[in-house]
Nucleic acid binder design. Structure first.
Lengths: 236, 236
DNA sequence: CTTCAACTGATACTTAAGTTGCACAACAAG
DNA sequence: CTTGTTGTGCAACTTAAGTATCAGTTGAAG
């Protein structure tokens, strides 16, 4: 795309505001955007395949995309993470050029921008500023995966659920971000459990006044109290 | 260290043979080594702390180091990974400069080389060749953590145990690498389970002729047959 | 407004995995 | 050789978590 492209400023500002690009100079962002074109998907579409991510790199502009893995024998699914605006995908393919076999599913209507992945490998060497924020993004990802695995081993489902809810509650508004509008089924898949177990815990949390629960909506009544309860059960 | 340092060639060749440095020119390796000095630890020592990894970067020359996380309430431990010769630590701190709270424990007598971590950040920008292999190393790490978490959710303890053993069996010699000489307790901690459960599975595998078991030693009798059994149980 | 699929809440049941406990074997150190 | 520590093999048991099932709600779509 270029400065004449429809909505160019919208995409430019999206990058400019996103975590990874905010420290880049405007000119660098303009140069990068030249390599991209935009694409949209509807809720429940499969925006990328393990083949397309070998050749293309995506940046999420709006909407959420769920990345998951299935066990087709047991029909259980694990949601590895959820991409949000500003996220780059697929970082793993970007790094090692190998196939990455996961399922990507749009949770909302989604806008992304797409470029050849080799072009992205070029900015990495050409824009040291970008490199810098990219490294801290990688660090964050490594930590996230490491903590996911660790939590699965060391903590029970109640704790993993409460940690998930706390981590995704905006401390200012008190509202859920990223995992709002999800069913109990999907929340279960994020903590490596099943709907029924999650529902049990949610009922308990509701009955003990920690949560307000509506269809596809959870809200913490008092963040501080829930944190206390978490500490009490786990001596964090 | 420099070319006059005792055993300089030993360290030089260790790097030269290791995966990440093998593609670098000799001169670059010499330049890098200038920043390092060597250090040794005995079995059961704690070679690095979450503080030291903020300022220093380590490369393992010989021996293995176990990286793990504890839940002190339940006394359960999860071994996140085991470093072997050629491994760089701590990549996460290298990337994002933040503290990384894990336990490092030498499984054998260990030799490492150490440098200021900022120096390492410098090579990353100065040696594009190194950058290239470093990226594929990062990709491997991301995949490893992602797969660890996924396996914990999607597969039972038997499957995780068998996958661990298969993954660490040298297809040529048929012997265990990396996880040899470990107790059932330690193997359990690697797959996110407990000794007793792992022991049960090992007894079954022994009785059905898949494994030969001795104190601190496992050996697959027939890799092909065990792979078949794994497929049978999981339709991989 | 009606219909239907998706989501939720609840109960009863099953099971894999974890816990406890003990006896014995192997090995390392004195 | 003796002693103590660490690892192994087993059995009995407990429990968190998963499965199965169903009724009732909600909200979107026609």
């Amino acid at each position: 795309m270029n400065k004449e492209t429809l909505n160019y400023n919208y995409y430019f500002n999206s990058l400019k505001q996103s975590h990874h690009f905010s420290e880049l100079e405007d000119n660098a962002i303009h140069e990068i955007l030249e390599m991209f074109h935009s694409k949209t998907f509807s809720k429940d579409d499969y925006p990328f395949t393990s083949e397309s991510t070998l050749y293309k790199i995506f940046i999420v502009i709006s909407g959420r995309i769920e990345i998951s893995k299935m066990n087709f024998d047991t029909d259980r699914e694990y949601i590895i993470n959820i991409l949000e605006p500003g996220d780059i995908y697929d970082v793993i393919c970007l790094l090692d050029k190998k196939e990455h076999d996961v399922i990507a599913n749009a949770l909302d209507d989604v806008e992304v921008i797409v470029a050849p992945i080799d072009a992205a490998r070029k900015w990495l060497s050409e824009y040291p500023d970008f490199n810098k924020t990219f490294f801290s993004y990688l660090g964050k990802q490594l930590r996230y995966f490491e903590e996911s695995a660790t939590d699965l081993v060391l903590y029970d489902t109640w704790t993993r659920l409460v940690k998930l809810i706390l981590r995704n509650t905006d401390s200012k508004t008190g509202k859920l971000t990223l995992i709002n509008n999800l069913s109990h089924e999907q929340i279960a898949k994020m903590i490596g459990s099943v709907r029924n177990v999650v529902n049990r815990h949610i009922q308990d949390l509701k009955n003990s006044q920690f949560l307000s629960v509506k269809r596809k909506s959870l809200e913490i009544n008092n963040i501080h109290k829930l944190l206390e309860e978490l500490k009490k059960r786990n001596s964090f």
